[in-house]
Design a binder for these strands. Structure first.
Length: 417
RNA sequence: GUGGGUAUAGCUCAGCUGGUUAGAGCGCCAGGUUGUGGCCCUGGAGGCCGAGAGUUCGAAUCUCUCUACUCACCCCA
């Protein structure tokens, strides 16, 4: 017996309809917001992620699935969705399409880390990428896309936290302020934070160590160091959110773990999953396209974890829609082939029909029909075949109606509701 | 990478202080006469009791080691 790999999960037939439902809603939201699907490969040159995600991030430093292929190339399974899209945008000249270019993706992503509730080594993300627009409107639209999906999925109260981490210009002065602040208390910081102090002091704000968190609580706020442009943008986003009636809170400690963010960053948080509860995270990354070798192009987007979505929906008792079931079950008495052929014929007429293929007796077939949650059941035997009509039973209340076999398809399509 | 927890049937779990052929509920399959589901009853299939070593006349049960899984931290969706 070979077991499943650590941190991976099977999507089982009893559960898959939940994912189908989420995917339907994703497509509907994409339709409402005019998002077009983009799919990039599951693996890319390692270099893409080194440059795209940022080499001070944990994702790149210790969580990538990197290996050498048979041609000696260094390959990495995508640890997030944005880098590949940026690559594709540049490589395929997508800046020639009408801008802003509004895209979404659904993809598996891979990170080598210790699994826990709501965290896997392979998980799936729904993500949105919008290129070309640098307005607060565009930020708010992206936030609205996520929010709309939450609502359609019955997740009514995700908390929206926003922040701005500025652009390289204002980040420079903020980093200096942070370094100065933390350097004074260097002795009290945890070892990792002492490293962060040199490389990326922003990340100290995110540390959960008690001491570091206490020190970080009084650290200077990014918001006080924004340049005029970034400050105006941040105000614009807040005003528009308010006008749109979207509740939010500003949390100046949000520091996303990917280096590419600029200006707006945001998270949708729920408290149902267990330890961590960010179910959607995103923001603006205005320099990424240029940094990856394209012409400068502003961009915003987010990633949303589908497994976490399912967990959250389950925990808040949201509906996943109807469990798929046959509209009509065709049982037989001593005429299994005829029932089978009738089933096939009905399917050709667009009816979701089912029958027994295990040689069960009539009673067992009825039980099966019941367990499959069939809406109707009909029994086919010698008499029915001869007379060309049969009694169709509605399973919910047991009532029967006589229907001619030639009318069966119509009958079911009309009555199934 | 750090710290805790758990490993017995497909699933949820009983098996007390070591004592013959390892249990229940659910699920699965088949029956409860001749052509009708949900309730009920009967039967069946299905377990190297996570692996290895040790203690013992005897280990699912006690000891040690390993492994897997799980939860939390870091980080992230």
């Amino acid at each position: 017996m070979i077991n499943i790999m650590k941190g991976t999960k099977d999507l089982l037939p009893q559960e898959s309809y939940k994912w189908d439902m989420i995917e339907r809603e994703i497509k509907e939201v994409a339709r409402l917001f005019n998002l077009h699907k983009i799919a990039t490969p599951t693996f890319e040159h390692t270099e893409l992620f080194l440059r795209g995600v940022g080499d001070t991030t944990d994702i790149v430093n210790k969580e990538m699935y990197t290996f050498e292929d048979k041609g000696g190339r260094s390959v990495t399974l995508k640890p997030e969705g944005t880098a590949g899209v940026v690559r594709s945008y540049i490589e395929n000249g997508l800046s020639q399409l009408p801008q802003p270019l509004k895209m979404y993706y659904e993809t598996p992503v891979f990170r080598y880390e210790r699994p826990q509730a709501g965290r896997l080594r392979e998980h799936h993300q729904f993500g949105v990428e919008i290129y070309g627009a640098d307005t607060p409107q565009q930020d708010v639209e992206v936030i609205l896309i996520a929010r709309t999906l939450f609502h359609r999925l019955g997740i009514t109260a995700p908390e929206l936290h926003i922040n701005s981490i500025g652009c390289p210009t204002c980040r420079k002065s903020y980093n200096q302020a942070l370094k100065a602040y933390f350097a004074a208390k260097q002795e009290e910081l945890c070892p990792t934070c002492r490293e962060r102090l040199q490389k990326n002091p922003l990340r100290i704000l995110d540390c959960k160590e008690e001491k570091c968190a206490a020190i970080a609580a009084d650290a200077p706020s990014v918001l006080d160091y924004l340049c005029a442009d970034c400050a105006a943008h941040h105000e614009g986003v807040k005003n528009l959110l308010t006008k749109a009636g979207i509740p939010y809170s500003v949390d100046d400690r949000i520091v996303r773990g990917l280096d590419y963010y600029t200006k707006t960053v945001f998270e949708f948080v729920v408290d149902n999953i267990g330890a961590k509860s960010t179910v959607c995270g995103g923001g603006r990354y205005n320099n990424l396209v240029e940094q990856m070798g394209g012409k400068p192009c502003p961009a915003v987007g987010f990633g949303m974890g589908i497994e976490r979505l399912v967990l959250t929906m389950t925990n808040v008792g949201a509906s996943f829609g109807e469990v798929p079931s046959p509209d009509l079950f065709i049982a037989n008495v001593g005429s299994a082939d005829d029932a089978f052929l009738l089933t096939c014929a009905l399917r050709e007429q667009g009816v979701n029909a089912e029958c027994d293929t295990m040689g069960r007796g009539l009673k067992a077939q009825m039980k099966l029909s019941d367990k499959l949650l069939s809406k109707f059941t009909v029994v086919i035997g010698e008499t029915e075949l001869k007379e060309g009509k049969a009694k169709v039973k509605r399973m919910s209340d047991g009532t029967e109606e006589e229907v001619s076999l030639s009318e069966l398809a119509n009958y079911i399509n009309v009555k199934k509701g």
